[in-house]
Design a protein around this nucleic acid. Structure first.
Length: 508
RNA sequence: CGGGGCGUGGCGCAGUCUGGUAGCGCGCCUCGUUCGGGACGAGGAGGCCGUGGGUUCGAAUCCCGCCGCCCCGACCA
């Protein structure tokens, strides 16, 4: 046997960050644009986002939310209303200060330059998030307890002037959804915050095949202006953590700052309790790093732009038409099958390219099922089936009718294989620790994975440990989360008795 | 904002030290041979060498200014 050749180079173990970039390129998902820090999302990548959008949107609507749309530009003064929030985003805001361009001819070169003129009395900020402008609308909309709860979601782009952008993971402009709700009581708002948190967890597991740890952020890691931030944390293949979605209980901080008030059942004027929550195109980056291998992207079936690609094999000119007709017919039949309530997405690749080129292209693009049909298969009524969750060389030759019957089942198997693989990987890379010496010894250069510890430390102690090892507390996992539990129940710092567990890790 | 690097056909680069007006690989197009497979041969298209100025008979190459991008830090969905 010759050495294994991989479609992506370098491999994950050679250089993970570079591998990540190469997977995106090979799968044709996105590219850096001429606008600093911003990406062009190409059709194969945008297709994933559209599917995420559709499937999440259905869940938001099913839980009583409605979509609306708010302005891209936020009056600067709005951002000054909530002090903590303002401070949290101040360093990464793009600001619009002019509303007109004037064409000026350079007397030397003769070239025309466009000079901004018409300075605005009050500048606008391009939304880094929309709490303030949505809050202003909520203040107008809410008068009575009968107007509550107000359950709004927005699909939008936002901009944060990031210093170090990376495709999907951290771009200056990104796409997301932001839910914003207002409630009569703290209890109701917290129920909402937790409900969405659970919805995110399920979505990542059931749609993206990513197992996440649901938990709460410590005060240090909270969203600016929130009283409680819930997170779902995923582990990707370099053992780093990535925050895949957050749900915040904002208390009355924003409602007091923006006067979202209502007359209550008892006739008194009260401030609403608000929440906000979001997931972004970062989920695509998470998905790539969670599942892909050294041959490229591996797509979880539910968000695969195409789930099945059929490649006609046409070695002889005289059988060519029959082969293509057979492929088309199979595609049409498959499109009448459903997986998770949606028609199968099937593509027939009739491009006049050599078979090997096509096959590798679809491998690199992560298509869950590849089917090849040639003249021989037509005679035997069989098809050649290859799966992205299995080695490149492995093939199966079911009778065509059996494949049609089992296609959705195979997709489901692929989904579960990806989920199981990711879960096993994660669990194998979480260790426990209950002494400070062990803690310090754990954080070696090659990133050994997450550490779970009993925790009763202070914010200052957390901060110190974080800086020392370039780690953070990813979350305090919910009590219901089953993970290797720390051996003792005493905090590894000072030994206090505690039932609180903390997960520590390096993160994106 | 600190520290490094780089701007040359679609992409990746050589050429810059030692000025003489552009080359390689991949990709693309055509033809042929191959092909249950990331094949091969022949031919072809495509570049005011980031930008403005200077030196020179002559600048991708030397000098000065500007712009942009990438990597490593601080910040972060």
């Amino acid at each position: 046997m010759s050495a294994e050749k991989t479609a992506i180079s370098p491999t994950r173990s050679q250089d993970f960050p570079e591998w990540y970039q190469q997977v995106i390129k090979a799968a044709d998902l996105a590219e850096n644009s001429e606008t600093r820090g911003c990406m062009v999302i190409k059709p194969w990548g945008y297709g994933i986002w559209e599917l995420i959008q559709q499937q999440l949107d259905r869940r938001f609507k099913a839980t009583g939310h409605q979509n609306a749309y708010f302005p891209l530009l936020i009056p600067l003064s709005y951002l000054e209303k909530e002090a903590e929030h303002a401070e949290g985003f101040a360093t990464e805001c793009a600001v619009v200060t002019h509303h007109r361009l004037e064409a000026v001819k350079d007397p030397v070169t003769g070239k025309t330059k466009m000079i901004p003129t018409g300075e605005l009395a009050e500048p606008y900020v391009i939304r880094p998030t929309s709490e303030t402008i949505i809050g202003a609308a909520f203040a107008r909309w809410v008068e009575s307890y009968r107007d509550l709860p107000l359950l709004i979601n927005q699909w939008a782009n936002v901009m944060r002037w990031e210093m170090r952008p990376r495709l999907f993971l951290r771009t200056a402009e990104f796409l997301w959804q932001e839910g914003h709700t207002a409630h009569e009581t703290m209890e109701e708002a917290i129920v909402e915050t937790r409900m969405i948190h659970g919805l995110y967890e399920e979505f990542l597991r059931d749609h993206l095949a990513i197992p996440v740890v649901p938990g709460e952020k410590t005060e240090n890691e909270r969203f600016p202006g929130a009283d409680m931030t819930l997170t779902v944390e995923a582990m990707v293949q370099d053992r780093k953590a990535i925050q895949a979605g957050t749900s915040h209980y904002l208390g009355q901080n924003f409602s007091k700052a923006q006067n979202i008030s209502f007359t209550g059942r008892d006739g008194t004027v009260q401030h609403a309790h608000t929440t906000s929550w979001g997931v972004s195109t970062r989920m695509i980056g998470t998905l790539i790093m969670a599942h892909s291998d050294d041959d490229g992207l591996v797509l979880p079936p539910r968000v695969a732009t195409q789930q099945i690609v059929i490649m006609p094999i046409t070695p002889k000119e005289d059988s060519r038409e029959a082969v293509i007709a057979s492929c088309m017919a199979l595609a049409e039949t498959l499109r009448h099958q459903t997986y998770r309530g949606e028609p199968l997405r099937v593509h027939v690749d009739t491009r006049d390219l050599s078979g090997g080129v096509k096959k590798w292209e679809w491998i690199k693009k992560g298509v869950p099922i590849r089917i090849e049909i040639g003249p021989r298969d037509i005679e035997t009524r069989k098809v050649c089936v290859q799966r992205r969750d299995q080695p490149v060389a492995s093939k199966d030759f079911p009778v065509k009718e059996d494949l049609i019957r089992s296609a959705a089942e195979i997709l489901d198997e692929i989904h579960h294989n990806l989920l199981n693989r990711a879960t096993e990987f994660r669990d194998a890379n979480i260790s426990t620790c209950d002494s400070l010496d062990e803690f310090h010894a754990h954080w070696t250069k090659d990133n050994p994975g997450w550490l779970i510890t009993p925790w009763a430390g202070t914010a200052a102690q957390e901060d110190e440990l974080s800086k020392q090892h370039k780690i953070t507390i990813r979350c305090i996992p919910l009590d219901s989360v089953k993970l290797p539990s720390a051996r003792s129940t005493q905090c590894f710092l000072a030994g206090q008795e505690t039932s609180t567990r903390a997960i520590w890790g390096r993160s994106y």
